Computed example of a mutant assay.
Amino acid sequence: MRPILATQDTLAPLPRLLVEPIVRAALLEDLGRAGDITTDVVIPAEARLRGAIVAREPGVVAGIDAAHLAFTLIDPAVMVVVDRPDGSRVERGETVLRLEGPARSILSAERVALNLVCRMSGIATATAALVEAIRPQGNARIVCTRKTTPGLRVLEKHAVRAGGGANHRFGLDDAVLIKDNHITIAGGVRPALERARAAIGHLVKVEIEVDTLDQLDEVLDVGADAILLDNMNPDTLSEAVRRVNGRTITEASGRITVATAPAIAATGVDLISTGWITHSAPILDLGLDVS
């Protein structure tokens, strides 16, 4: 088997308590008020099938536990065997997950399972492409943002980790991130930072976004745990990293693509954050083959 991007030691599965409400909501949305009327009238109640979720193209898989749960929530009698856990690289034609059980149950859960696993695998694959693109350029890490699909954040951020990336904050409540609008309304970099420092607990990190080197110098004078260097070209980023000189974490953002990421990583920034891996990544094409 080819090595996976994130080993099972480092990529712990999400707790069922987090995943189940998402999958239940998706199933309820699809089943509506009367259930799967097509399958119920076409497929005999006693029919059974064997099937497999198979990759139609190469990529990195994620969302496997959600797909597994979609089938077993519909019917605990469906037997599921996972061949490729989250974080595994797959080639076209390879089996990701195998199923056996009541045909009606498997067919009724099929679309929800595929929607989730294709979406999450697309995110993992896009993340992996960025991770591979910057690998020769140093130690920068690819991190995601809060630009996630409403209701799917926990799965999408897990998919980023499956692709070899890391997570930025999960929500508004787990870190202070002072952005340009905060700075404008607060009256500048210094008052924004001073107010944050005076109000937060000792375990809460403070990051601030800057657009210019002058703003950066002001932040360095006051102090912050991390600095978001927004929409800077590689030359400016390199100068920013030089001025920081390891005193705090540096994060680059803005127009990050597979083509632009290597030059950004080469500047020496610690993190490269991007929203498109969660809000715009194409799905990975996976399908259910039955026998």
Rank of each mutant, 00 (worst) to 15 (best):
V219T: 08
G275C: 13
R243V: 04
A281D: 02
V78Q: 12
I264R: 00
D75S: 15
C144G: 11
R84M: 05
G268A: 10
I178V: 15
D225C: 04
E239V: 10
V241W: 03
T250V: 10
R255W: 13
S291R: 14
R141K: 15
R56N: 06
V60C: 04
A266L: 08
V60P: 02
N139E: 08
P234I: 13
A266G: 02
S121T: 07
A259F: 04
R190L: 01
G187E: 09
A192E: 02
E46H: 11
T10W: 02
E57M: 11
V41K: 14
G275Q: 14
G32A: 11
A66Q: 06
G223I: 10
R243I: 06
I200E: 02
R195K: 15
A281M: 09
E218K: 08
R50T: 14
H279C: 11
P3D: 11
A66F: 08
I256F: 01
A252W: 01
F170D: 07
P136Y: 07
V258Q: 09
T212R: 05
I283W: 13
E94V: 05
I106T: 00
A126P: 12
D65S: 14
A62P: 07
C144M: 05
V60Q: 04
I249Q: 05
A128N: 11
S121K: 05
N115Q: 05
L220V: 12
V80Q: 13
A128R: 12
I178P: 04
I249C: 06
A55H: 01
L286F: 07
I53P: 00
R243Q: 09
G93V: 10
D225H: 10
P102Y: 05
V131Q: 10
V41D: 07
E20N: 09
P282A: 10
S105D: 01
A266F: 06
V23C: 04
V269M: 04
T7F: 09
D75L: 04
R242S: 14
E209H: 03
V204G: 00
R247M: 08
Q215G: 08
V81A: 10
E94G: 01
V244A: 05
R135H: 07
L18E: 05
A26K: 05
W276Y: 09
A140C: 05
P102S: 10
V61L: 00
P21E: 01
A199T: 15
A281G: 12
N115R: 08
V23Q: 07
